[in-house]
Simulated assay, not measured.
Amino acid sequence: MESAHLVQVVLPGIVDPEGLQIRQAAVPDAGPGQIVIAMEATGVSFAEQQMRRGRYYDQPPFPFVPGYDLVGRVLATGPGVDPNLVGRRVAALVKVGAWASHVVVDAEDAVLVPDGLSATEAETVVVNGITARQILHRRARVRAGQTVLVHGAGGGVGSVLVQLARAAGAKVIGTASPRHHEALRELDVIPVDYRDGDVPSRVRELAPAGVDAVFDHVGGRSVIDSWHLLAPGGTLVAYGSASTRDVTGSKQWPVMKILARTWLWNTLPNGRHAHFYNIWAGRALNKNRFRACLRADLTEVFAAVRRGDVTARIAAQLPLAKAAEALRLAESGTVSGKVVLTP
């Protein structure tokens, strides 16, 4: 093991971004079946914004190191791991712990990044790309010729989702703020201003018979509107509750309400389907299947980036020591693309 220092960003409690702390220690060793990744890029996602408010529904107790995903080079391998992995660029989904110069993960959770993709390009589509591809193809099973509605089409998941949906041959309607509309039109997406007083009416004008799928990260009232916009046989995939980011009270309740609604809607005899998507669902039941799906989906997203079907959008790139500034920037709502942290 080289004599580098481990540098971590610690979230000590419910604090402003400036309350993040920097911690240094010795670089950890890889245990059996593990690898040490020297981080090259990690990202600021909506999850970290929720976590610093204590609002992410299954976050660990404070203090902890945030960071949902990372890309980096394998620095060391533990017993039982192919030593030829050393030096290879990999990506990993970890939920917490990625805002660090070095991260230990199970080797089975690492996905090889293909040659030709930079670390920052790959980082923009790890959690966002896996989420987008799984809700599009594993949950909604969108096909060519269908019409889909993507809420937050200018956001992290939404921007990848609209590109994957267009690549699949779907007609795409995307809600976003006006500053994203021109970029969406360039992607052949029909933009709708999410601040319009009556988004459902505007969507019905564009799709009188309803849409075949809705992807909703907003939660709250939006989920109900999304359900009513479905065509017969259509599918709603709810995958967040962004509208409750600054709400006080139980952090589980917004998710429980969505789960209850999707269960109820699925009992109705109208042929429509509703899902609440959790990227970690199934891991506890079948870890091998979970890993196989994740690897297959992320590998396909990387291939889509290389083909040009998906453009990696990097909003800003800051060093790990400026994580507070990066978090503040991501929360500002003024940037397009992913805010990336580097060592």
Rank of each mutant, 00 (worst) to 15 (best):
E2M: 12
S3Y: 00
Q8D: 10
V10I: 15
L11D: 01
P12A: 02
G13I: 02
P17G: 03
P17K: 02
G19E: 06
G19I: 02
L20R: 03
Q21D: 10
G31R: 07
G33K: 04
G33Y: 07
Q34F: 05
V36E: 11
G43R: 03
V44K: 08
V44H: 13
V44G: 13
Q50Y: 14
M51D: 08
R53E: 15
R55Y: 10
R55K: 14
Y57T: 13
P60D: 04
F64M: 12
Y68G: 03
Y68N: 13
R73H: 13
A76F: 07
V81L: 05
D82V: 06
P83Q: 10
V86H: 03
V90M: 13
V94A: 01
V96Q: 10
A98I: 04
S101M: 06
V104M: 06
E108T: 11
A110E: 09
L112A: 15
L117W: 02
E123P: 00
V126A: 07
V127W: 04
I130A: 10
I130M: 14
T131C: 04
A132Q: 05
R133N: 14
R138M: 10
V142F: 05
A144N: 04
L149S: 05
G158F: 00
S159W: 01
V160E: 04
L161P: 07
Q163R: 05
L164Q: 02
L164F: 03
L164D: 01
A165L: 05
A165C: 02
R166D: 05
A167S: 07
A168V: 10
G169N: 07
A170S: 00
V172K: 06
V172C: 02
V172E: 02
G174P: 02
P178C: 08
R179L: 09
H180D: 13
H181N: 01
E182I: 02
A183D: 06
E186A: 15
L187V: 02
D188Q: 11
Y194L: 10
R195K: 15
D198V: 07
L206S: 14
A207H: 15
P208E: 13
D212L: 06
D216A: 11
V218A: 12
V218D: 02
G220P: 03
L230I: 04
L230G: 01
L236A: 02
L236W: 08
W253I: 04
M256F: 12
M256Y: 10
A260P: 00
W265L: 12
N270F: 09
N270E: 13
G271E: 03
R272Y: 09
H273P: 00
A281F: 11
L285A: 15
N286M: 08
N288Y: 01
N288W: 09
N288C: 00
R289E: 15
R289P: 00
R291S: 03
L294N: 14
L298W: 12
L298M: 10
T299M: 04
E300Q: 15
R307V: 11
D309C: 06
T311Y: 00
Q317F: 00
P319G: 11
A321M: 11
A323M: 07
A324T: 05
E325T: 09
A326M: 12
R328L: 09
R328P: 00
E331Y: 03
T334Y: 09
S336P: 00
K338S: 08
L341F: 11
T342P: 05
P343H: 14
P343R: 13
P343W: 14
